[in-house]
Design a protein around this nucleic acid. Structure first.
Lengths: 254, 254
DNA sequence: GAACACTGTTCCGCAGAGCGGAAAGATGGA
DNA sequence: TCCATCTTTCCGCTCTGCGGAACAGTGTTC
């Protein structure tokens, strides 16, 4: 598409690709690193990182050889968070749920074929999964994604299912996993995944709805510490209770 | 500077200026609105918003006449939040403080001559100030900014003071307010502002420190509901207690 | 229905913006 | 000191991105 899209501004896309690269890598990067990851020429990277530095999105670290993201980008997401009534409503419940389970608890919203975490309460267990606001997972492989999708009303659900399927196809992945996960969620009333998006990590999730705001409430777990049985019993029940306390929506039973 | 900076990429800056404009306005905007706010030609705006849409940073609203920010930009801020040990440590205390006071409570970090909120617990009082993660205020005029600045070790404090002063000068503002606020903070051990960054809003704040991480803990208040006396007594004391529970640093007494 | 105002998109000519290769400079390690 | 690697700037060049204009679409008023 972008190959012949005369209206697409390459220079803007390149600069944003650099920000995304730094976000993804999650450590300070030098221009050469960035050039390798993005495929851009080093002189191009130098000009773009210079621009991003002047604008305040990145800064040089102490080494003066690497750049790191500044908090400025958080400001771009501010209206998303500020505008979410459901988020304000859910926050107190997240903490209660985390205390109840000892696990990390998060609220996630839809973002294309991804979910993005909009609030995270870190668990106190010895092994609790580390997450933060802004973290992002694919709908197709995450418990939060599946639960959120299952909780959508038609035709949004149908539309999103087909978009997620197209994403799976484009990545040349087998479609059975997604189908299985979605069917199970529609059947069980919660979504559960183990080792799908990262080895050693899984999650349970239910959907939450208020007005036209849809989200998923999720507990990511270390699969080496938390059994599937416990996910299905203790954690799913706690999630259900919490979702009911926040808002009434649960996935429709198939 | 940018006028003759051969290495500065205008197209990137323009695209980011559009994102910032949408973040600042906090409502869906049409291309014409964006053109008026940014001073760019409508056809330029159309190409840039098209690019941002393809990349996933904005999307058309239902009206199909306006764009809104998507959660994707939250992802850019993820490493900032994920990397903050102080934030993880402070979060439980924020809720306790909000419950204790009934007010909105926030943790803020430095971002150039601004502070950015990295966590916000909304107050339950009838009149509690509305904030969210990613919100941003100037150091020079906000309680959080002053407190954070006052809590910095030299030479960082001295450097930042001069940068803030330069910002004030560039804006043609009187420098006395900043000086008064900073002196008071160094003297009192907390920062207090009323109606500086917005009519009807004020704040109390103290600094928090852990290792080389510096932040400010703040309670923004509606000045029509909360007296200066109460800010100085009840709220400042609660802030101090909470900061002590989080970490040991308080501003050095002058 | 016609006229008008407003918005958004695309075209298109054009100049200069942005590109990337190369050269020069800087840094760190052996 | 030498070498490898990284970073920045220069510079020739092309094609990208620009903005004015034309066109299309939408909504309102008479």
């Amino acid at each position: 598409m972008t190959a012949h899209d005369r209206q697409f501004v390459d220079a803007l896309a390149r600069g944003l690709a650099i920000l995304e690269c730094m976000s993804r890598e999650q450590r300070p990067l030098g221009n050469r690193d960035i050039a390798r990851h993005t495929g851009l020429a080093p002189s191009t990277v130098s000009r773009l990182t210079h621009t991003l530095t002047v604008l305040g999105y990145i800064r040089l670290t102490r080494s003066e050889r690497t750049y790191e993201l500044t908090p400025k980008s958080l400001n771009l997401g501010y209206p998303v968070l500020a505008g979410m009534t459901l988020l304000q409503r859910a926050r107190p419940h997240l903490k209660a749920l985390s205390e109840r389970t000892g696990e990390t608890v998060a609220l996630a919203i839809r973002d294309g074929v991804y979910i993005t975490f909009v609030d995270v309460v870190q668990g106190q267990n010895m092994v609790a999964v580390r997450l933060a606001t802004g973290g992002r997972l694919r709908i197709a492989t995450s418990a939060a994604g599946i639960a959120l999708l299952a909780g959508l009303p038609d035709p949004e659900r149908r539309n999103l299912v087909s978009r997620v399927r197209a994403d799976i196809t484009r990545r040349d992945e087998p479609p059975e996993q997604f189908r299985t996960l979605l069917d199970a969620c529609l059947n069980d009333g919660y979504a559960l995944v183990r080792n799908t998006w990262r080895e050693g990590i899984g999650g349970v999730a239910v959907s939450v709805c208020q007005g036209d705001e849809h989200a998923a409430l999720t507990i990511p777990v270390a699969t080496g510490s938390v059994s599937e049985q416990e996910m299905r019993s203790t954690l799913a029940a706690a999630l259900r209770d919490t979702a009911e306390a926040i808002g009434p929506a649960l996935p429709t039973t198939a």
